[in-house]
């Protein structure tokens, strides 16, 4: 999923300062799962904004709404009936949701309330960790199912570097060395011969370096 975290309240207060009536919009997808921008978090932030602004002596009307999937124009359309009543839309979706709403309602300020962090999975309740860098050319089949781009601090294709110590990365004892994990899994799979092959330099065009990416499915885009 795409993970996110609420922005600091100071920054949020600053961004909504000019406004008296806002629509706070959550999303039922990833940000709900990572407890950053679902219905509950919308209610919490709405409550915090109302109280904070009351305390400042500048009340803010905050209405709440949570869309099924904010990054989908079909669902963003649901705001059309009410959106005229507000000074601004404050989105608790990831950057994709914010932009989808902003694109649909051109004349209205659409402000991000969360920082979109990474594509990750849940390690346990309340803990999420980065797993995928969206590089556009998956090598997980060669690396024991552990991504050297997303999980090695130096995104080394032929690791580990000299900083791997007792299974941990040189940057922090809290970070696993991806290449230790890769090696352990390759051993488990009986695929250690994969390690001896030098992995070729990556063609970063498939990643963000080739410019903004798009997927077009001709059979569907009719």
């Amino acid at each position: 999923m795409i993970t996110a975290e609420r922005k600091p309240m100071e920054e949020i207060f600053h961004s909504v300062e000019p406004y008296g009536k806002i629509l706070l919009v959550g999303c039922n997808e990833c940000v709900t799962v990572c407890h950053a921008g679902g219905r509950k978090e919308v209610a919490m932030l709405a409550s915090a904004l109302r109280m904070g602004r009351l305390k400042q002596g500048a009340p803010l009307t905050v209405d709440e709404m949570t869309l099924e999937r904010q990054c989908d124009p079909e669902y963003a359309e649901e705001l059309a009936l009410v959106v005229d009543q507000y000074d601004a839309v404050c989105s608790m979706a990831c950057g994709c949701g914010v932009q989808t709403v902003a694109e649909r309602y051109q004349g209205l300020p659409v402000l991000p309330m969360v920082n979109t962090e990474f594509m990750g999975s849940s390690e346990k309740n309340g803990v999420w960790a980065e797993r995928c860098a969206g590089c556009g050319n998956c090598v997980l089949g060669l690396t024991g199912g552990i991504c050297p781009i997303a999980r090695c601090s130096k995104r080394i294709f032929n690791g580990p570097c000299g900083g791997s110590s007792k299974g941990k990365c040189e940057i922090s004892p809290d970070v696993d060395c991806a290449w230790q994990l890769i090696w352990d899994r390759l051993k488990q799979l009986g695929q250690t011969e994969l390690y001896s092959q030098i992995m070729a330099p990556k063609d970063w065009r498939s990643a963000r370096d080739g410019g903004p990416r798009r997927i077009v499915r001709e059979d569907m885009a009719i």
């Binding site: 080394i156 570097c161 990556k202």
Partner: peptide, 10 residues
């Protein structure tokens, strides 16, 4: 920013 376009072996 951390470049690491290629690694030391490449």
């Amino acid at each position: 920013a951390n470049v690491h376009d290629i690694d030391s072996i490449q």
